[in-house]
Design a protein around this nucleic acid. Structure first.
Lengths: 144, 144
DNA sequence: TGTAATTTTGCAACAATGTTGCAAATAAAA
DNA sequence: TTTTATTTGCAACATTGTTGCAAAATTACA
């Protein structure tokens, strides 16, 4: 998985490529994303990581990452908003978010199933499709 | 579509079948659902319907309807929570929510595509599937 | 490397949304 | 009609998200 230094380097490159300043907050939030291998919600950032972040900064950082195509949102049925890092195909103005999200009902964790394709859906006449979001609820590997 | 009286009768039956008292608030909220033919969110109930409902009552009413299987939630990528009436296959402890939801990016309206089946999804080994939620974003018939 | 221009951060204050306890009002049961 | 059980509305509070602005950090440039 690489050393801590390699991770930091990878993050710096990502920020530079997105034309964003490299700041402590951005680096630490991206570290959390890269390490978690799943979806994070807002409250996770205030708890985790020893240092506690200012709420406003977290909101603005996530907003910025969204706009730059670094992260994407995952649909939920409650008021929480979940985010996960995008794969390489995502760019500033186009999210290629064609994978399936899995939410475990036992541990509550949401993961991106990158290998699982979103199947084709036949819409009724007159509807134009831009984007499909799929969330599967169930029990994950670790919880069985 | 039936008269107003027929609608009221249908609603009363639904409430009685769910073992719920028939109250003004519940009847009026169900009327809104039946008439809207789409998803409603919390703020819709305070605006609509001439009479304005108490916020707390709306929250509790929606919660009750959810528990009785009268309505279901629709996943969103923001903090709003959207609800729609269930079809007949839904019961108190089992939601047969196997249809596709369509969200129009132009008018913002969310509809249930009852005729559009959720396709089968092949999960990686070790994952157990309970329920699949699909939201298609695009442009609806009326907005084209 | 040091300085100026730009961007980001954190605080304060506010707005919106969701929750809880309890007494009054309403609906159902007897 | 009266009693019992449920539901409602208010008040107070908790949580979550937003905006303006000055201080701090980062970047650009000499």
């Amino acid at each position: 998985m690489g050393t801590k230094q390699q991770l930091t380097e990878r993050i710096s490159t990502l920020l530079r490529d997105s034309k964003l300043s490299i700041t402590d907050t951005r680096v630490k939030i991206l570290e959390l994303f890269m390490r978690s291998n799943g979806a994070l919600e807002h409250s996770d950032f205030e708890k985790l990581a020893g240092k506690s972040f200012d709420r406003v900064t977290v909101y603005r950082t996530l907003q910025t990452f969204l706009e730059k195509g670094i992260i994407h949102k995952i649909p939920t049925t409650d008021t929480s908003v979940r985010y996960a890092v995008c794969k390489s195909e995502c760019t500033e103005h186009h999210h290629h978010d064609h994978h399936v999200h899995f939410k475990c009902e036992t541990c509550g964790h949401t993961t991106c199933l990158d290998e699982t394709d979103v199947p084709n859906i036949q819409l009724p006449k007159g509807y134009a499709m831009h984007n499909v979001e799929v969330v599967v609820n169930g029990v994950c590997k670790s919880c069985k």
